[in-house]
Design a protein around this nucleic acid. Sequence first.
RNA 1: GUCCCCAUCGUCUAGUGGCCUAGGACGCUGGCCUCUCACGCCGGAAACGGGGGUUCGACUCCCCCUGGGGACGCCA
Length: 487
Amino acid sequence: MSRPKRMVNRASRRAPIIESPSMSVVTRFAPSPTGFLHIGGARTALFNWLYARHHGGRFMLRIEDTDAKRSTREAVDAILDGLRWLELDWDGEVYYQSRRHARHIEAAQALLAAGKAYRCYCSPEELAQMRQTAKREGRSIRYDGRWRDRDPADAPANVDPVIRLKAPLDGETVIDDLVQGPVRVANSQLDDMILLRSDGTPTYMHSVVVDDHDMGVTHVIRGDDHLTNAARQTRLFEALGWKAPRFAHIPLIHGADGQKLSKRHGALGVDAYRSLGYLPEALRNYLLRLGWSHGDDEVIDTAQAVAWFDLDAVGKSAARFDFAKLDSLNSHYLREMAPEALVALVLPRLDDQSAVVRERLLQGIASLTQRIKTVDELVENSKFYSAGPAFPLTIPKAAKQLEGDGLVVLAELAERLSGLGQWNEESLEEAAKAHAQAREIGLGKIAQPLRAALTGSNASPGIFEVMRILGRNETLARLAAVPGIER
RNA sequence: GUCCCCAUCGUCUAGUGGCCUAGGACGCUGGCCUCUCACGCCGGAAACGGGGGUUCGACUCCCCCUGGGGACGCCA
């Protein structure tokens, strides 16, 4: 596989990833269990997985369930299921952030003891008012630090305080983002974030930092809606005296309306893609190309993706989700599957799962697969191999074939077929053509009624293939079952 | 409102100062093939948001504008 010349240039241009060989990569996917694994999360997981696999590092999974009120076991299961279906295997045990509360609290207390954090006695109402005022006056909306240097003796008696980080007021925080490049944020824009809530539980912002450090995460790859969080978190890392990981904020996936795709806004869970009939490899390929590229390559299987993937080829602008392209990739991977694998997908969803049907499918599935985009369509189009069409036909165009002349032609053909010596595609086509010639009509005038009678549809694989696979008995039986034909 | 990010065909993208008459893919579309629908093959329409610079030369570098997105929670 030769790399295009330009790819080399591109790589050498941004190339900020100069790690010592001994430094092994650790990435993590850290979803919050408040719903299914949606498509954006799936891509974030994929990129983290690919980056770790490409660099021979570790890919960890951490469930961010610090919000006990909103986290559910069902959501955790849905996320795990989704990742398994996508075949994104994680290393080691699943981390549950909630189980590490003690550690998070300890870190916050240490900051407090070191004078790098402080107690804030503002009530939620007070904060809401602060925000409102700031908004009205056109200032940025953030906590004003009123308890930052206030005498603890002023503390109201029966108010449980939150613990806030005492972050630097001046200067700026620079994130040297692996995707976005250097991003500078004035420290004056960032307020003193809450580490521990008034009930003593740690916030997400704090837990993330402690966990990423403790887990040895080297690269945080996540949606760019976290970009400003990276600045906040960097300051916490500094306060704790830890080295911050490298950040890579990948652009978000937008819906057809150009807005961020989220659980509350149009995003489907990966389970929906599964039940819609998409293959995990197709979804991975599609998601990979949303924001990442390797020259003009489009069809990239997972092994190739692992070999090629790196952060320097991740684009910076948001992408819209496009089902049409997913469809085309899905049909590509479907067509590459072995008949046995395809049948294993289809047969369980058919009414008749007998050996006879299985054998028909084995023979007919390849050409069936040429005509569909999803597994669902494949199942739908395979049904005629399982059961004969019911009459009258539900498809008007097909039903029309079984009227008048069509019916006459079929009756005559049935006669001819019953006496046919060889039953293969060549002999069948020969017989049909001979009949067409005898009646001085086009082959289509015979093939279409045949198709309707045999498959119940006006579109199907080649009709002689269908007849061959169905066999003489079944073919004749189906013809005989057509209302208006007696034999 | 404040801050941050982004900007090439309808969509995903290639492009890193001359290789660009801007390439590929999906979709759309004309044709061929043909028993239907597909597949396949051949062809077509389709984009650098605008304005200033820099330069011998800008899709490419800089600035402004415009447009889009994101963040501003005791959510994650």
